[in-house]
Amino acid sequence: VACYYILASNENLIEDIKLELDQEELSDKAFAKFINTSSKRYLFLIDEADDFVKYEKEHNYSSLKFMRSLSEKNNASFILAGFWETYRYTFFDYQSPIKNFASIFELEELEYEACIDLAIKPMKSLGLSYDSQKSVEWMITRLGQRANLIQIVCDYLVENIGASQKIITKEDITKALEGEKLLKFFDDWNEMSTDSKEKWIDRVVLYGTIAKGRFDDGDLQGLIKRYGLEINSNELDKSLVRLRLGYIIRKEDDGGYIYRVPLFVDSLLRGDVEGRFLGEVGK
């Protein structure tokens, strides 16, 4: 199998795929013949697919229909890595060709032992180690086993510990957890949609529940009724999907929800969450 990584563009994804295979001169019909008659099988990873999928929705899914036709011949497969827009047009748009030829896989937290390795092994290659295993485990727990957050903290540690220091202490980790880059990442949590009402609903859900730690559908319906909010069940369900995809909440087996990253929760609770919530429901 020949594998290719392609960063999605809004308009020219098929042309980008042709370019990767040095077949940019071919028409779509000729390119399809090239793929379907090749002795190879092709796997294309299309990264950051949200803008591309949204563009496709607005242009009759022409490229996605072409990709589906290639996939149906079993000589080419496509992995679209995206977020809310990719999910939205797979599950909620029945005209989308993605719905007919794709399966959804949601990425979960990194396995615990892999988190340990991610925190320790790169440091070891730099001649650095931690003062104890417990310090590493504490960091991983605070970050909810989220790989990119562990990477941000480790980058901070490498950049900010003293040149002669070889042991990373819990105090060093504590400073890293309060680093500007990590807090900026948390501040951007509400960028999961470009739609202003969807973003507002996400804020209402989060600010209205984060102090509880755990909540369920009944809690949310109670908030909507108490404050007379114009949020229907479909809009609420989509908000919960966005918050889940954004690794902010996790749905438990009993149907309740919990927040996944303790450090994120604490960073918000240090502010006036109740005031923010009242500001949102007063709009």
Rank of each mutant, 00 (worst) to 15 (best):
N10F: 04
N10E: 15
L13M: 04
I14Q: 07
I14L: 12
I14C: 04
I17V: 15
K18N: 06
E20H: 05
L21N: 07
Q23E: 13
E24A: 11
E25I: 12
L26P: 11
S27T: 15
D28C: 11
D28A: 13
K29P: 05
K29Q: 14
A30S: 15
A30C: 08
F31G: 12
A32D: 04
A32K: 15
A32M: 15
A32V: 11
F34S: 04
N36D: 09
S38V: 13
S39I: 09
S39P: 03
R41A: 14
R41P: 03
R41L: 14
Y42Q: 09
L43W: 08
L43V: 11
L45C: 06
L45A: 02
I46V: 12
D47W: 06
D47S: 03
D51T: 01
V53M: 00
K54P: 01
Y55C: 04
Y55M: 04
Y55R: 08
E58G: 07
N60S: 09
Y61Q: 08
Y61C: 01
S62W: 10
S62Q: 14
F66S: 05
M67R: 03
M67V: 05
R68F: 02
R68S: 03
L70S: 01
K73W: 06
N74H: 03
N75G: 01
F78N: 02
F78T: 00
I79K: 02
I79L: 03
L80A: 01
A81N: 05
A81C: 13
E85M: 01
E85I: 04
E85R: 03
T86I: 02
T86W: 09
Y89K: 05
T90V: 04
D93C: 10
D93M: 08
Y94K: 12
Y94E: 13
S96A: 02
S96K: 05
P97A: 03
I98M: 15
N100G: 15
F101I: 08
A102G: 13
A102T: 12
S103I: 14
F105Y: 11
E106P: 08
L107D: 12
L107P: 09
E108F: 10
E109S: 12
L110N: 07
L110R: 06
Y112V: 07
A114W: 13
C115W: 08
C115L: 06
I116V: 09
D117T: 03
L118N: 07
L118P: 02
K121D: 10
P122I: 12
P122D: 11
P122G: 13
M123E: 08
M123L: 14
M123A: 13
K124A: 09
S125V: 10
L128F: 13
S129C: 07
Y130D: 08
Y130P: 05
D131R: 02
K134W: 03
S135A: 14
E137I: 10
E137K: 08
M139S: 01
I140K: 00
G144F: 04
Q145T: 13
